[in-house]
Amino acid sequence: MKVVGFAGFSGSGKTTLVEALVKRFVQKGLRVSVLKHAHHRFEFDHPGKDTWRHREAGAFEVLAASDRLITLQRRLPEPQELGVPELLLMLDPAADWVFVEGFKQARLPKVEVWRASTGRPLCYPEDAQVLAIATDSPQQLPQPAPAAVLDINAPAAVADWLTDNAPKFEYLP
């Protein structure tokens, strides 16, 4: 499987870019998984639903399955930040690509997503794992970029760049 990180600050366009890339890769017949970092407490279950009630009763894991969707909730014994390697092990190894959104500090090859309009700093000057910058403001990059500067508004070109550079993203646990 190939694994690529998409790093950048909130509001930079990571989710929009990843969504467009997932669609393009799936149209090519590839299996894509997404690993998304959540910086805050999030809840996708609803009070009163059976799965919520089982979890609230203290179940360690609750697996809900239908003929179209499986969802697994696992209670962590205490607050902890699982790393990308541990989380990747939870995904189906049959995926062709895994797009990792967030996890800026993860040690994996990345595409940094940056818009000058956010006023946020860049990661690439300090992170040798950034192989490309996807931006709408290439003329405003404060120093020479790594290997590639990609147009964030041209997801087809970003997809082509990823495909052309696929060996750089081969994941070996």
Score class of each variant (00 low, 15 high):
W114H: 10
V100E: 00
P125S: 10
H40A: 08
R55E: 06
F6S: 00
G102A: 12
E78F: 05
A116L: 14
P77A: 13
G58M: 13
W97E: 06
V3T: 04
F169G: 02
F169L: 02
G119R: 09
A95L: 00
K104A: 02
C123T: 13
A132F: 02
F42G: 05
E86I: 03
Q143M: 01
F103Q: 02
D45P: 05
F99W: 02
A148R: 12
R53N: 09
D96M: 02
L89H: 10
H39W: 09
G48A: 07
L150C: 07
V113A: 10
D160F: 01
E126S: 14
P47Y: 08
W52N: 03
W97M: 06
W114M: 11
V26F: 03
Q140K: 13
V111L: 07
A148G: 07
A166N: 10
P173T: 07
A128I: 00
P138S: 15
A128H: 01
I152A: 14
A64F: 09
S33L: 06
A116T: 12
V158I: 14
V18S: 05
A156G: 15
E81R: 14
L150S: 09
E170Q: 07
T51C: 12
R74T: 13
Q140N: 14
R68Q: 15
V34H: 03
G58N: 11
G13N: 04
G102T: 04
T15M: 10
L89R: 14
K28D: 11
A7I: 06
Y171M: 02
S33F: 05
A147V: 09
P173M: 00
